[in-house]
Design a protein around this nucleic acid. Sequence first.
DNA 1: GCAGTCGCTGCTCATCTGAGCAAGAGATCA
DNA 2: TGATCTCTTGCTCAGATGAGCAGCGACTGC
Lengths: 320, 320
Amino acid sequence: MESTSMTASDEMLSVRAAELYYEDAKTQDEIGSLLGITRWKVGRLLGQARDHGIIRIEIVHPRARRLPLERELRERFGLADAIVVPNPSDASTLQLRVAEAAADYLQALRPVPKTLGVSWGRTLDDIAAALPEGWARGVDVVQINGGVSLNKRAGTAATTAVTIAQKGGGHATLLPSPAILERRETRLAIEADRTVAGVLERAASASAYLYSAGVASASSVLVDSGYLTPDDVAELVRKGAVGDVVGRYIDANGNIVDPGLNERTVGLGLTQLRAAQTSIAVIAGEAKHHVARAVASSSLCTVLVTDEATALALLEEGRQ
Amino acid sequence: MESTSMTASDEMLSVRAAELYYEDAKTQDEIGSLLGITRWKVGRLLGQARDHGIIRIEIVHPRARRLPLERELRERFGLADAIVVPNPSDASTLQLRVAEAAADYLQALRPVPKTLGVSWGRTLDDIAAALPEGWARGVDVVQINGGVSLNKRAGTAATTAVTIAQKGGGHATLLPSPAILERRETRLAIEADRTVAGVLERAASASAYLYSAGVASASSVLVDSGYLTPDDVAELVRKGAVGDVVGRYIDANGNIVDPGLNERTVGLGLTQLRAAQTSIAVIAGEAKHHVARAVASSSLCTVLVTDEATALALLEEGRQ
DNA sequence: GCAGTCGCTGCTCATCTGAGCAAGAGATCA
DNA sequence: TGATCTCTTGCTCAGATGAGCAGCGACTGC
């Protein structure tokens, strides 16, 4: 991306050449004689036109991706991989598109994970639905954070994990515990329980993780599920929370906001998540820009699946 | 533009190939081994992607043109040439862009016209302004329809012609007559006058014409100039008028709407205009779609300079 | 079951295109 | 003015690409 400025006449020639080349499918040679210049000059003009952004090439397809952005994300945040899908004109389908992309990625992931640790939530549901039957041959699934149990959506978390496992030809191991308990001691006690301890152990040794992130707001699933009150969340936000990852609230730097609350939360810890070989975060949408930044910049994930607008927002800051 | 449908898997491959080719600048060979297919298959997938409109290439530049649309216009309406400029995001600059394009075209017109017949109006003013000093060496300009004289913009018509002539190194011949007279006899009398007759003769023998078209509405320049009342125009519209060309109102088929009025109008007749070797109509903007269609489809011009939206509207009807 | 047809595949070959290089045209400075 | 430097230009050459063709398999109708 050179920023060499062009003379006005060269700019006009560039435009004419670009039109003849891309819209009229003429060869550079033909364009040369048409414009009275050599074919090499035409090639250079086209190059300049590309550099100056005069020629815009877009791939219009719901399943398209944005490779240049993916590369930038990888480089900027030191990710192993990044998946960026274009924002659909209809914003309501965005979550679906991203889920599809995540499902695609999961299916193509090599080496195929033996055990996949998953969180739960709306996004994970969508991914589970988007995965095709037989997306893998024998992938076991284990929940990495406590499930929903006390609200209307009871069972959803379980369904998600089971669906992913079934379609992947493996078994699901559920974490039979609330997401957040009222006292630290209770959490220690339940984690000491043989069943729960076994699941957590499995979770800790999973070969890959798949999770999403929530926004720190009153509409969070954790509030919805009754684990937290809107006031609790407001307090967390006051302390700097931008969102939650596997049930744990983090600030813009990816640090735990409320250690006390963290101590009452059941499931894989952020440290374990950070140590993972492969951890896929699926985070998309206007509201999640902040959490996405926190996750990406604090090494909480090795792979980020997101949308173009979020990717641009992440790359915006600190671009010279 | 083939309409061959693709299988879902080929479509996905097309998209991936297009991304790798256009966004990642990989060779078809590399893409082939990456996707596990031969490079020829990659080439074909890219071809299909282009055919299906998955790959959208746009040239982003105020002076850009839309060559494929120009070709379609030429073919559909049997034009000698067509110039289509992209619609700017800021609609207020559209007239300026089109005027620039018309000026460019005029400057590049070969053979260089010895005498150029021009009408007057806002669009012609803009073109005159857009023409660079010395756009031609010795092009004489002659007005082809009666000028504005009785309104605030008096003199504009003259200025337009003079400017074009001066910048082209030639002289301007003005038509010293009102656009529309009150009685047919007066028109005959004034046209019989030696001065006027001489100008009209010159106008009739011009080697090229440049004119715009007006919309049939109360905001027309002819109303503005006091030649017609809003009621007159309303009546014309009732009779089927879509707009005016060199002061003469035509219907959707390019026919004179009111023969009586036509008989009172001074200047080149539509028949003469239709017989011209080169007649350049510059018509752009939402409001002028109907006149543009009438002009293009009734052979009133051999060259049409317009904007993308208008071109699309013209091509829309009767597309199978 | 079998010939005919159609569409896809991989190939050859000619053409197109970009990287890199040497020469020339200006610009700059002493 | 002359020397030097920089930017542009036209070129060579190798690699990339598209057109066209023969072979293959699948499907169809008898």
